[in-house]
Design a protein around this nucleic acid. Structure first.
Lengths: 237, 237
DNA sequence: AAGGAATGTTAGGTGTGCTAACTAATGACC
DNA sequence: GGTCATTAGTTAGCACACCTAACATTCCTT
């Protein structure tokens, strides 16, 4: 039994994290490079993307949370967008709150900044379809795990949506069902940012998640790997 | 035939990218929060991590590249580390170049900043072993794709190492071989930052990559036929 | 009407990150 | 040897990112 690498390897979760960090790093630095040509900064560009998905406008606090920055930082960035004529402040429901909406110039620029990460999408496209689906599924799981721990803002993902019906169809390629669209779909269609998302009650989320993960393991076809790949001894490599 | 979601979905590569970006975002904002308590900033913390892996020291330019920042930015951050007594400048091979090494205080702090992304590692650990391995493999592929396009600095990954022998063993769990350690290993052991990495010649990289991706897709029993390639291969069991 | 919570903003400070311009050492070429 | 281009790192000057603390409003509760 050659378990040498099990003994001398850093835990796989740490190496995965390191890979995610590397990709995050290059996304950051790319955003800076793209920023110069587009006339907006990375934070502003990201905010434009968020607003593009919210035609009804977004509150300042919501933007700050989604961007992972403090309210003052968001406030200043948004003021800059307004000054540049890319966004406008409209009164919200309250008199204290404001709702930010894009101007037409802002929409045009948002469509450009959206393309910043295309270089990464191209790299992802070098994977075959099954691998992309597995990657998406894994990312959804990781993000969901972060979300239940409140370590990431709540995302508009299928797996927490009240319209999500995991594994209700026999078709292995499209086993899930969306009750909103009323159509079957598969892992490769999972969304992270669905406009029609509606957060399901906690208990319903739990049930769906159980079904999603359990069934998913079986349909994976990798049951053999599951049994054999068990504990590893943490050790720096 | 229900292909509705194929028609109304954003390309999967874009959704994957968006997921990666979300994770990158939370890593960033976490680093800022951790920064305050540790007494170093995110960039400095990341640099400490790099230096921790390079006992022989690193040149300034190398740090800048790996961090995806410009030389001046790196220079100032490193000067701050030196001022704080966490790192020291030692003369490099050239009289113009410098080599940065950690002080013992720096090493201690580096071990702390290393734990910044543990929250993400915990989330990754909610995946089962097979999924983690698939995720790692997918990330390696993405990073490799970025690397051949020169969109990310060269990483010390197995898949570009001259000691890497993909799919030379029949054991499906440990089909690869590392000629440096002289031991078999599997996808779950793939490294992104191996201290013993030696960049293989381009043609050898190509060949290994071909074998790695092709065999990985099929994963039939034909790996046994390749066993002659390695020479003296430690037998399992 | 009097707290208290929620929403943004202002103030002040540090860190991030860039380009451009500079010094110094190296290496290549005649 | 002498010139020239390259490479390594620094300095200067600037704009943006990001924070905490303190503040004004508005809203909700009692």
């Amino acid at each position: 039994m050659t378990a040498i690498f099990d003994a001398i390897s850093e835990p796989i979760a740490k190496r995965v994290t390191s890979g995610l960090a590397k990709i995050g790093l290059v996304l950051r630095s790319r955003a800076w490079k793209g920023a110069g040509t587009a006339g907006v900064t990375p934070t502003q560009g990201h905010a434009l993307g968020l607003l593009r998905d919210a035609p009804d406008g977004m509150r300042l606090g919501a933007i700050a949370k989604l961007l992972g920055i403090s309210a003052p930082t968001a406030s200043e960035a948004m003021n800059t967008l307004v000054t540049k004529g890319l966004a406008a402040k409209t009164p919200g429901l309250d008199k204290r709150s404001i709702s930010l909406v894009l101007t037409s110039e802002g929409e045009a620029l948002a469509d450009q900044t959206r393309e910043w990460p295309d270089f990464l999408a191209d790299a992802v496209d070098t994977l075959d379809a099954a691998e992309q689906a597995a990657l998406l599924r894994a990312l959804v799981k990781v993000i969901r795990a972060l979300q239940v721990r409140d370590e990431i803002p709540h995302q508009r993902m299928c797996v927490t949506c009240e319209h999500f019906r995991p594994f209700v169809h026999a078709d292995k390629l499209n086993p899930h069902h969306c009750a909103y669209v009323d159509a079957a779909f598969g892992d490769r269609h999972l969304r992270l940012n669905c406009p029609e998302h509606a957060e399901a009650p906690a208990s319903a989320q739990e049930d769906a998640w159980e079904r999603f993960t359990e069934q998913g393991r079986v349909s994976d076809g990798s049951a053999a790997a599951n049994e054999a790949v068990v504990g590893h001894v943490p050790r720096q490599g």
